[in-house]
Every structure is written in structure tokens, then in C-alpha cells.
Design a protein around this nucleic acid. Sequence first.
DNA 1: TAGATTGTTAATCGATTAACAATC
DNA 2: TAGATTGTTAATCGATTAACAATC
Lengths: 209, 209
Amino acid sequence: MAYQGISDSVIKRLPRYYRFLGELKAEGYTRISSRELSEKMGFTASQIRQDLNCFGGFGQQGYGYNIEILQTEIAKILGLDRRKTAVLIGMGNLGRALAMHINFESKGFKIIGLFDKKESLIGGTVKGMPIRNISTLDEFCRENLPEVAFLCVPKQTAGEISEQLIKLGVKGFWNFSHYDLALKHPEVTVENVHFSDSLMKLSYRLDNK
Amino acid sequence: MAYQGISDSVIKRLPRYYRFLGELKAEGYTRISSRELSEKMGFTASQIRQDLNCFGGFGQQGYGYNIEILQTEIAKILGLDRRKTAVLIGMGNLGRALAMHINFESKGFKIIGLFDKKESLIGGTVKGMPIRNISTLDEFCRENLPEVAFLCVPKQTAGEISEQLIKLGVKGFWNFSHYDLALKHPEVTVENVHFSDSLMKLSYRLDNK
DNA sequence: TAGATTGTTAATCGATTAACAATC
DNA sequence: TAGATTGTTAATCGATTAACAATC
């Protein structure tokens, strides 16, 4: 089931629904109405019903939504149940923090390879996985066919490496560099995390609230 | 100069303008038209002119925009020239990565204190700054009055600590936890960075492109 | 059945794009 | 002056909110 024509505005709210439903489930709730959910989440009830109805009628008139079922449906929509393989490029502080911190499995990803170019890092392990020499990336990818790459390298390196990865069949990037991947390669999926953009927004809002 | 009524849609594009103008400047350009900039950035020329005119007429008819001046103006709008003091709470992998990786000064921030509760971390240093015991946070804040906190603690801890910080006068948060600070404290400024939301969006788009 | 709440259509609001007069 | 390009108003498009009929 491939959805299309669903706007980004809707998609960006789905992880939040997923998270809140998980919390409600953990608190022992089994059902909830769009009005109650709206109060907890800060969206309007109307928006919640609109959003969910992009993907199907998960609710029941007069009753509301079954939390367990709804959360499972959203997980399916987000593709969390389909395991995607990933390589992590760049094992500096950030790459290491991601590798150690994040529960990738629960978000539908599995890291199958860690890479860096720095001699002092190569051969070390993180969470039991060896850090490989970036010079072996080509060979590794041809053998293991990762679908996605997490890019934790500086801007200067990002261009070359992403080019290489795309040729090797990588279809998506989680991009922490300031290299403008989406602009250069519109054919692949790019999700950016730009810390400095985020900080600048915070800066603006502190002064203009 | 406090702007208001400027929409979030506009604000979120400002860091990108700032970044691209910096690159153009580094490449030796001195002027650019909205049309040329639109081709480089992937926005429409119309949007660029609209965005910039929220804050003033920085261009010149028949000429375009002076890159140096425009970038400086955007820096002022974003408040990058006004130094805000910050404490970083939580020196696990993520907190450490941020402290080491990011050039806070150029984004208008200065970290004045690092905190954790873990005995093994306390007393260590990162970039020459000592990691302090979280139990001394109260005292430290009363003396040094940080304006902002970077929150790199797990969800369970985030509620209590943010409460404490708000009482101590902290006005803004860079929030990496899943604790819903903005919902609980609408009076403070909150900028969230949610890795898992970002990953889930990537997951969705991989399947539905 | 009566009450509640969804799914869905219509109305409103806001953001983006297009057009063009002002002006450098 | 003629050409270029902004600043700004008007038109369009999309997203959010409101309303309500369908239905559990």
C-alpha cells in the first residue's frame, strides 16, 4: 500500500500521533475520542479526524478510536514494521551518539555498517559493531545493499560520499550535514536534521515572542 | 527591534537564506537577484522577495541584493549578534556531541555550564568546561542567570528539570527529549529536535515517494 | 431509541505565486 | 533613457477549521 498525494503537513504530525497513542496505551487507556485527543495534543479535533481519514476510517461513530488499533495502523502507514537497512557514515561524536542513543529497530531501521576514515576510530566497536574503513564502503554496499545512509560527515565530504552511495543504490538519506543533498539529487529521499537552523529559530523566537 | 506577526513559515526559511548567502559570499559574489537566488535555493523569486520584505527593503530596484549587507541583516533579525547564555543539561553521548560539535557562538549562544547527575561524568571536562553536579544547578543559575537551557536528558527527567529551570528564570529551551514542554509551559520558548519523528518521516517517504 | 462521535463536505484562513507599477 | 529588478498588491492554491449528516 503506497499512499500518495498526502501532504507533508499531515505526515509531519503522524509521529506525534504515534507517540501520544503509545503514552495513552501505557497509561491503560483503550479508547479515545478526537475531542479528548485534541485536548491532550494541542491539535483541533477536526484536524485529527481529517488527518486520520487520509488513510482510512479508523474510528467508529459514537465511540471514538481504539488506541491499540489506531497506533498499529499509524505504525504501518509510517512503515515502522518494514525493516530498512542502513549504513552510518561518520563516527565522530554525533555519529557515535546516534548509534548508541537511538532505538532504530522501533523506527523501522537496522544499522548494518559503521564507517569512518579516521585511522584511530577504525577497528573500534560501537554497540558491538565494528567501525569500518570508509575505503571498504563500495565493497560492503555491493554485498549488503543498504537502502539508506545516515550521513554524519562534514559538508565538504558529504557531496562525494552521497554521490558514491547513490551509485551503489542507496535510496534515502538521513542528512546531518549542510550539504544540500535534496537540491542536488531530487531522485532520492532526503530527511535533513540541521542543528544550526534549529538553534537560529530558537534565537529568533527568544527575541520576538 | 522586536518583530511580530511574522509567520513560522517565513522564520524557518531565514537560516537557509543566511547559510546560502554565506556560501555565495565565500565564493566571491557581492550581489544577487531574487531570480538567481531562487535558482540556487529552490524557492521561488516571488517568495524570496516576500520573505525579505517582511523585515524591510533590503534590495534595490534594477540591481538586486547586496549579499554582504543582506546576510548581516538576516543575522540581526535572527538575533545571532545578541549573545544568549545557556546551560547544557545531560552530558551523555548526545549532550557531549552537541557541546563538542556545534559552533554556538556563531549562532548567538554561549554555554556557561554543563550538568549531569552521573557520578562518573561529574568533574570531567568538555572543551575545557567542567561537568557539574546537577544538584548544584539551583545555586549556579541564581548566580549566573542563564537565559536558555539545552535539554539532553531522558523524558522522565525532563519534566522535573524544566520546571526547576523555569522557576530559575530560564526563558527558552532547546529540547531533545520527548517531554512535551511547549504544551506544559506555553509561556516559554521551546524549540524541539525530535530524532525519532525525523526518522519516522524518512521511513514514510521511503515507502511512498 | 437517544446520545455520542465519526467521516466528510463546506467555509475560512493563511501561505504561495503571479503580476505589475515603482524606481534604481 | 532603457533595462533590470525590486516592493507590493492581487490571484491562486492549499491547509485548517467549522458544520452537520451518517451511523454506531
